[in-house]
Design a protein around this nucleic acid. Structure first.
Length: 568
RNA sequence: CGGGACGUGGCGCAGCUUGGUAGCGCGCAGCGUUCGGGACGCUGAGGUCGCGGGUUCAAAUCCCGCCGUCCCGACCA
């Protein structure tokens, strides 16, 4: 490819709207352009890089026994209503109507398409297992698209779906996919972790996320300092501390005027927040629930949502306090009626002689102990995890990291096959729902995630698995025919050596070409100039390390290939 | 949706407080000089100042409404 024929407009200044490195650099280096919020055009360089990723994904999917197909992106509403996701996705799903006023949607994922397809065509246990995948566009009307390709409304995704006869089969298929995913991300050169995660909108029990570690990652995960525990922040469960055995003090009411927050009470009493018992009220589809956590901890509303699913949990608002007659800021678990369910975090077990609300304005109590002064219906994992919490496996300290979700795998079981009545006839003649798994990789996001990990001040510096070109040949003196001619020969030699090279044949100064080469991030730069030619050499630069070297002009292809192989 | 900011040639910005001529850098075109880390000179093209309304003799500038974009929160590949 010649630069004069490549549509790759570079920007000297970063557009003001781009904040994170991947967004800024993909725009500047001419990989993408924005059409509207969360929707991007992929320019030739971006498309090449994405195709490199796709190729690796395809190879590993095929090797793992999955077959590629392609499904529509415009789909009828009905199956989505059957599975409940028409409702569950809500405004996040793009919805439209055709001329007959039929409700249609743009696909956020494809369970509702593939499941009926398989059910109609693979009626026997003899047809199983099967694993089908596609690489295609997904649509999600995100609340807030951001960070360039990292969170968009139109995304390129590889989605695979496995269908098995029973749960053992599903788990086996799942394990095969997990292995394939590891190979994919290893080959991409990305620095990533695999964590147990929250299932979100998709559903199912077991699931894993593949996270590229990155400062701009929106997903928090916890990792044990000893490396034996990894989990998504929302799925992580710290080890519950040992119950404490302090002598119980008397329950005493104290006057705490105006101290309606934990901090205020801690201030008034001169005691740490960890000795307070935070009692938060929630409404779980009409039922009142009290959640107890130590005063220095936050309640994880995601964990609550999961615990109470399918009931909808929401925090009490001012109106709720009023109608139920609770004093906001002064609620304590003592004396709450039987109609109120009281859940406490495991950490509450470890404390005693709590300071908590007295259930009337401007008063708290000290010395509150369970079960003498208040009851706990159930102990659950309810707190938001934080740095330094205790690893459930070995007691090590947990650290919090940030990552970008590149892939997510789920064991769905019959979450979709059941409602969609997708069944096969088993060996014993009975109808059984398929046991499914689904496996996603955000191709466009992965490109951005890799860019987050591989860049410097000068621009992108792709690992060779992703780079749109393996090398760029830069003739420095376009006014000198012998230089141009030599560059052409090197370019031809590289192609003969199996390298996908870009020849920067633009009538531009060397400085411009060097700057663009750095910006675009090709692994190897080959400089052909007058100076070198006189000595019979070319100059090489490894983008990743900035390391420069020389090679004999006559041995250019071999030398470049050798250097390229040293690239990450 | 709640909170914050921004919208002026392709990109980055100034001008707005205190209404009166639309300006700078980069990029783009032509000519010349340069030519191994974003060269230089001269000449030139390019702007409904986001949109609509209002105030005013006069609005990029003041007022109202709308739209768009970005950032912080709840969602996800």
């Amino acid at each position: 490819m010649r630069a004069t024929q490549l549509f790759a407009p570079t920007l000297r200044d970063a557009p003001a709207e781009a904040e994170v490195p991947s967004h800024r650099l993909l725009l500047r280096a001419g990989y993408i352009r924005k059409l509207m919020s969360g929707v991007y055009t992929t320019l030739p360089l971006g498309l090449r890089a994405m195709r490199r990723i796709e190729a690796i994904v395809r190879e590993e999917m095929d090797a793992a026994g999955a077959q590629e197909l392609r499904m529509p992106i415009v789909v009828p509403a009905e199956p989505w209503k059957v599975t409940g996701r028409w409702q569950a996705y809500g405004d996040e799903m793009f919805k439209l109507k055709d001329r007959h006023d039929r409700e249609l949607g743009l696909t956020p994922t494809h369970e509702e398409v593939i499941t009926p397809l398989v059910a109609a065509e693979l009626p026997s246990y003899r047809d199983l297992p099967v694993n089908l995948y596609q690489i295609g566009w997904k649509y999600r009307d995100e609340i807030r698209p951001r960070f360039g390709l990292l969170r968009v409304r139109e995304l390129l995704m590889k989605d695979a779906y496995s269908f098995d006869r029973d749960e053992d089969g599903m788990r086996a298929s799942y394990d095969v996919m997990l292995e394939a995913y590891r190979r994919i991300f290893d080959r991409l050169g990305a620095d990533y972790v695999v964590v147990e995660a929250d299932a979100g909108q998709i559903g199912g029990d077991v699931n894993h996320e593949f996270l590229a570690s990155a400062d701009v990652g929106e997903d928090l995960y916890v990792a044990c300092e000893h490396g034996d525990y990894l989990a998504d922040l929302e799925a992580a469960t710290p080890r519950a501390p040992e119950p404490a055995a302090a002598p119980a003090e008397d329950l005493t009411e104290i006057h705490t005027p105006g101290a309606a927050t934990i901090d205020a009470v801690a201030d008034v009493l001169g005691r740490p927040a960890s000795e307070m018992l935070k009692c938060m009220l929630f409404d779980a589809s009409g039922r009142t629930v009290a959640i107890l956590v130590p005063g220095d901890r936050e309640v994880s509303e995601k964990k609550l949502a999961k615990l109470f699913h399918p009931a909808l949990v929401r925090r009490f608002e001012d109106g709720d306090f009023a109608t139920h007659g609770y004093a906001k800021g002064y609620v304590g678990p003592q004396g709450l009626g039987e109609d109120v369910q009281i859940l406490a975090d495991h950490m509450v077990r470890a404390g005693s002689n709590w300071v908590t609300g007295a259930n009337r304005p401007d008063f708290h109590v000290t010395g509150a102990n369970s079960p003498r002064d208040f009851r706990v219906d159930r102990f659950e994992d309810l707190v938001q995890i934080r740095e330094g919490d205790v690893c459930p496996n070995d007691g090590g300290a947990l650290r919090i990291g940030r990552g970008i979700v590149m892939g997510h795998t789920y064991q769905l079981g019959s979450r979709y096959s059941q409602p969609l009545k997708a069944t096969f006839v088993d060996e014993d003649g009975t109808e059984q729902p398929y046991q499914m798994g689904c496996y996603g990789i955000g191709i466009s996001r992965t490109l951005a995630a890799v860019a987050e990990q591989f860049h410097d001040d000068a621009g992108l510096r792709w690992p060779r698995a992703v780079a749109p070109f393996d090398a760029v040949v830069v003739p420095t003196n376009m006014d000198q025919p012998e230089v141009v001619e030599a560059a052409e020969r090197v370019y031809a030699g590289l192609r003969a050596a199996g390298l996908d090279a870009l020849l920067d044949d633009r009538q531009a100064t060397a400085g411009v070409k060097f700057a663009d080469a750095d910006l675009m991030g090709f692994p190897v730069q080959v400089v052909v100039g007058k100076r070198g030619l006189e000595a019979g050499t070319i100059d090489l630069k490894l983008r990743a390390s900035g390391e420069r070297s020389q090679a004999d002009f006559d041995e250019a292809p071999g030398a470049v290939r050798e250097l390229w192989e040293q690239a990450p």
